[in-house]
Amino acid sequence: MSGPVKRSVTIAGHQTSISLEPVFWAALEAEAERRRLPLSALVSRIDALRITQPNPANLASAIRVWLFENAMR
């Protein structure tokens, strides 16, 4: 296990830094590939879902939860 890795992703035309552990980056990249989407498009979709919540979590947390829930389906 290793700590978070910070990467920049473009969402809605601006750069956003996201810190995720490598295992989450790998899962996110695999899911983007499976859906035939660029990584930034998948992150944008997750972000759009996140901001509709009453008390939205930060983006990194939302990605982790989304990946977990997606894996449980």
Rank of each mutant, 00 (worst) to 15 (best):
M1Y: 06
M1R: 08
M1S: 12
S2K: 07
S2R: 09
G3F: 07
G3M: 11
G3T: 14
P4Q: 12
P4I: 08
P4T: 12
P4M: 13
P4N: 13
V5H: 04
V5W: 05
V5A: 08
V5N: 02
K6Y: 00
R7A: 13
R7C: 12
S8K: 15
V9L: 08
V9I: 15
I11K: 04
I11V: 15
A12T: 10
A12W: 08
G13M: 10
Q15G: 11
Q15C: 05
S17F: 05
S17W: 02
S19R: 10
L20Q: 07
P22F: 11
P22V: 09
P22H: 11
V23C: 08
F24K: 00
F24Q: 05
F24C: 05
F24H: 14
W25K: 09
W25H: 09
W25E: 12
A26F: 06
L28M: 10
E29H: 12
E29N: 13
E29L: 10
A30E: 15
E31I: 00
E31W: 07
E31K: 15
E31N: 10
A32I: 03
A32Q: 04
E33P: 00
E33F: 11
R35E: 12
R35K: 13
R36M: 08
R36V: 06
P38H: 13
P38W: 05
P38Y: 10
P38E: 13
P38L: 12
L39V: 06
S40V: 00
S40Q: 13
S40T: 03
S40R: 10
S40I: 00
L42V: 10
L42R: 04
S44T: 14
S44I: 00
R45N: 14
R45T: 13
R45M: 14
I46E: 04
I46N: 03
I46S: 04
I46K: 01
D47K: 00
A48P: 04
L49A: 11
R50S: 02
R50H: 01
R50I: 01
R50F: 01
T52C: 01
T52N: 03
T52Q: 11
P54C: 05
P54T: 14
P56L: 06
A57V: 03
N58P: 02
N58V: 00
N58T: 00
L59A: 05
L59V: 09
L59E: 05
A60N: 07
A60W: 01
A60E: 09
S61H: 13
S61R: 11
S61F: 07
A62M: 03
I63V: 11
I63S: 02
I63L: 03
I63F: 02
R64E: 10
R64H: 06
V65Y: 01
V65A: 12
W66Q: 04
W66M: 04
L67Y: 02
L67E: 05
L67F: 06
L67Q: 03
F68Y: 15
E69N: 10
E69P: 00
N70G: 05
M72P: 01
R73D: 15
R73P: 10
R73Q: 14
R73N: 15
R73Y: 11
